[in-house]
Design a protein around this nucleic acid. Structure first.
Length: 524
RNA sequence: GGCGGCAUAGCCAAGUGGAAAGGCAGAGGACUGCAAAUCCUUUAUUCCCCGGUUCGAGUCCGGGUGCCGCCUCCA
């Protein structure tokens, strides 16, 4: 089984292996630091994070670099509006970025180079292009001479003649040809500026990526990624600049993620059609958002609607419920007699073949929806197994542990199911509130035993123990067939976000996760 | 006008030649004091339409239709 990746350069899936036997060099275009992130940015980050994780899983050492664009027109405008320097604006947004990426379970890249910290490299690269006649100076600006680069259009399928015929190209008197693009822009008054051989100015948008990718990864990299909306002109121009300067292949594989749409239209800042990542994270844990983002193939468009995250949370809950069930299993004694031996062996084989299916799915151009379905199939089989094998012995227990570990292992490649759902401690206040509530139930009644005599002592116990006590007490009521009171306790606890579940083996409880935006319970 | 993508059940979504994955929602059932969780059964004989290739097509080819992206900053 080998990894096949759809290479946008050739518009087909190709077998992937790194140029240098063990090391993969991957560069992904990051964000421009001018405004909040939205789900579209999150999708790109999560997709390339999965690719990064999977490449590492293949045993390769992966050098993964993603940049920040920290100087451009929109940033300059925005910074002026906020009365900040572009540097301050960048710092602020980078802080949010790392916080939100962390919430999504995105692993840190090797480094996050910034355009403004690589002026010497950028200037060198432009000089190189100038020497080759691929760049020319015009009134303080420097442009790339597209006509001198014969391969122009090889990524996007655009050809210079067709582009020239198009009506949407900006007419600029300074350019020799409308297709030429800026490598260096002469600065206007009040704009951030750097010295250069061509006078004061700032880098054009595309050149930073070429310069920084080459600096950190070399002149030929294995994978270059970014959103589908970057194919033209950004990536096309990167190829022109880089290959024009070096004469070498810039990137062997080009990977583009599909865009997130909302109401069937591209999610985009400029159109106002977007959901910010901040908003999404206010309503749902990062893992749910991540799961949603991986629920479509990375090259397909992904449509967000009102119920997307709700559905994702329900689906994810299924897996978490299973993992928690296994985590809660008590290890049987060594001498528990083995039963259902054939069933257990059969189950073990299924676990392995299921894992193979998962790997095959990811090997086929990172097919995450298919990979995820393998996890669901395994959960289903395991639930069924648990149901059928009623007496848990060491062998069946070990099988279930194996499934759980497999799921966590698969989850690791997707960045899911890593954290056990923490039973966060409620505040002292809410525990006191709980007591008030529950004590109210007993007004005029005699709960008896522990609760009537030791109510003050209970208050000093850790919350988990208090809840356990109430659960015990409720079970006493249930044994007495006092359903009304038992149900009232359950409902009071539910108000505090504590879900009780009774089954044959007893009662377990867990915290639910509430969606703060719409009060819908998204417990996982 | 040019380049590219998509069209599969109520919804989301896999599937590039050989009996239509998975999830959500719905229906029925098992379990349960009731819930919850779990399990079982069930939901596409028309895979956008029309032609063609083939023993056989959602899958390949041709022609339509609809939607989307890029060609201007954009993950």
């Amino acid at each position: 089984m080998s990894l096949r990746i759809y290479n946008a350069l050739r518009k087909k899936k190709e077998e992937f292996s790194p140029l240098n036997d063990n090391q993969v060099k991957m560069y992904v275009c990051g964000v421009t630091l001018y405004d909040e992130l939205h789900l579209g940015h999150a999708r790109a980050a999560v997709i390339f994070d999965v690719i990064y994780r999977y490449l590492k899983h293949q045993g390769w050492q992966v050098k993964y670099v993603t940049n920040f664009t920290d100087v451009d027109d929109k940033m300059i405008d925005r910074a002026q509006m906020l009365n900040l320097s572009i540097y301050q604006l960048a710092e602020r947004l980078m802080g949010e970025y790392s916080q939100q990426m962390h919430a999504l379970g995105v692993l840190p890249a090797l480094c996050y180079p910034r355009a403004t910290e690589h002026l010497p490299e950028i200037i060198d690269l432009i000089k190189r292009l100038e020497r080759k006649g691929l760049a020319y100076v015009s009134e303080g600006d420097v442009f790339f001479r597209v006509k001198k680069f014969p391969d122009y259009g090889k990524l996007s399928g655009q050809t210079p003649s067709e582009l020239s015929a198009g009506a949407r190209i900006e007419i600029n008197e300074k350019k020799e040809d409308p297709l030429d693009f800026a490598l260096w822009k002469k600065s206007k008054k009040g704009e951030p500026t750097w010295d250069s051989p061509w006078g004061k100015g700032r880098p054009g948008w595309h050149i930073e990526c070429s310069a920084m990718a080459m600096k950190y990864l070399g002149e030929t990299i294995d994978i270059h990624g970014g959103g589908q909306d970057l194919v033209f002109p950004h990536h096309e121009n990167e190829i022109a600049q880089s290959e024009g300067a070096t004469g070498k292949t810039f990137a062997r594989f080009w990977i583009h993620n599909g865009l997130v749409t909302m109401s069937q239209a591209k999610m985009s800042k400029s159109t106002g059609n977007f959901l910010t990542l901040r908003e999404a994270l206010r309503g749902y844990p990062g893992e749910i958002i991540r799961f949603f983002l991986l629920s479509a193939h990375y090259r397909s468009p992904l449509d967000y609607n009102q119920t997307s995250l709700k559905e994702a949370s329900l689906a994810l809950r299924r897996v978490h419920t299973f993992l928690r069930k296994v985590d809660d299993l008590a290890k049987p004694r060594e001498d528990t007699p083995v039963q259902n031996e054939e069933q257990i062996n059969q189950f073990d084989r299924e676990i392995d073949s299921n894992f193979d299916n998962f790997i095959q799915a990811l090997n086929d151009d990172f097919n995450t929806p298919l990979a995820i379905s393998a996890i669901f199939q395994l959960v289903k089989k395991a639930n069924l197994f648990m149901e059928k094998v009623d007496l848990l012995n060491l062998a069946s227990y070990n099988s279930l542990i194996k499934v759980r570990d497999r799921i966590r292992q698969m989850g690791q490649m997707l960045g899911l199911f890593q954290v056990k759902q923490q039973k966060e401690s409620p505040s002292l206040e809410s525990i006191n509130e709980l007591h008030q509530e529950l004590a109210g139930i007993f007004k005029g009644k005699k709960p008896g035993g522990y609760f009537s005599t030791q109510i003050d002592q209970i208050k000093s116990l850790p919350p988990k123990q208090v809840i356990d006590l109430w659960v015990d007490y409720r079970n006493k009521l249930r044994r007495e067939r006092n359903w009304a009171l038992a149900d009232e306790i359950r409902s009071k606890l539910a108000n505090l976000g504590i879900i009780l579940e009774d089954d044959k083996k007893g009662t377990t409880w867990r915290w639910s996760m509430r969606s703060r935006s719409d009060q819908e319970v998204a417990d996982i």
